[in-house]
Computed example of a mutant assay.
Amino acid sequence: MTDISAAALRGAVDLSTLRNRPQPSQTQTQADATPAASGGVVVDVTDATFGQVLELSRTVPVVVDLWAEWCGPCKQLSPVIEKVTRELNGRVVLAKVDVDANPQIAQAFRAESIPMVVALLGGQPVPMFTGAVPEQQVREVFARLLEVAAQNGVTGTVDAGDASDTPVASAEAAEAPMPPLHAEAYEAIEAGDYARAVSAYERALAENPRDEDAKAGLGQVRLLDRVQGLDLQRSRDEAAAAPHDVAAQLRVADLDVAGGHIDDAFGRLLDLFAALPAGERAPVRERLVELFDLVGASDPRVASARTRLASMLF
């Protein structure tokens, strides 16, 4: 389990510039209001409103989820964090930060890879975890956070609100039931059984090859399954010692994508593709295409990498 210490990041992260930013005006949208004012435990936070979150952390632990739309592992982890937060009924607030839209927060936390999850206690940052982790580990880390918060006198709560009265809850209740194989995959992901989730999504695609949700989920879960249990430093050392070892390079590329280092992953695989004989390139090309789909065709890094790959193919 992550070793949470209230002093672990002091001196390593400077949040003073965010703390001292001007407060938002009364004309700003409700989405920019403080969690205490809006009566919610999961809120979107911006560079402009982060100072309010820092102040709130003096009375209730705040968990900061640094994510981005292009980040596949973020889409797996964020719903788990939200679920655990809501179950704590106001004892923890979750502040969600889109790092692309809020670069000052990302810079302050030195978020070199995402998803990155950090807590705030009394205005001080506390490390939790980086990368997608199983739900059980999320629960263990949150439990430890509450212990440390109690030791530091941060034991307040916020009004979690009545979820049954919120528009979001009503909309969710009106949605059609999740397809059985999608539900099976989701349950498997929550349990950390990525292999079973892969199998469920593959069966969903066999039934309906046009199921875009299953296709997206399959790519994300395959990545999580491949990186589960890998040691980052050991994998990097093995790849450095054998620059033309396809398996070793694929492992590091997967870890880079899982950590949000998209350019590094694409660059590594494209360099490897260029260095290999034509008869050994297929696995590298297949992995690149899979990662392109995972990151998303609209991402400029994908467009650039596709162009370079095409130039080597034709």
Rank of each mutant, 00 (worst) to 15 (best):
D32H: 06
R91Q: 11
T17Q: 15
Q124G: 10
L94N: 01
D299W: 06
A240G: 03
N20Q: 13
T34F: 11
G219E: 06
V148Y: 00
D193Y: 06
T2Y: 05
T307V: 09
D44S: 11
G296M: 09
D65Y: 03
L255P: 10
A173R: 14
V252F: 02
T307P: 01
V148D: 00
P277C: 11
N20R: 12
V138D: 04
L120E: 05
V80A: 10
D231G: 09
V97D: 01
L145V: 04
R139G: 14
V42L: 07
A8Y: 07
V133R: 06
G192Y: 12
W67R: 15
V257E: 03
I105L: 02
Q28L: 13
D44L: 12
S311F: 03
V198S: 07
L309N: 05
N152Q: 07
L18K: 08
A310V: 12
L218K: 09
E55T: 13
R251Y: 02
R91M: 07
M312G: 07
A206K: 04
L218T: 12
H244K: 15
A183W: 05
L232A: 03
L224I: 13
P180H: 01
M1I: 15
G161W: 03
G131H: 09
Q124K: 10
P300I: 13
G90D: 03
L288D: 08
Q23P: 07
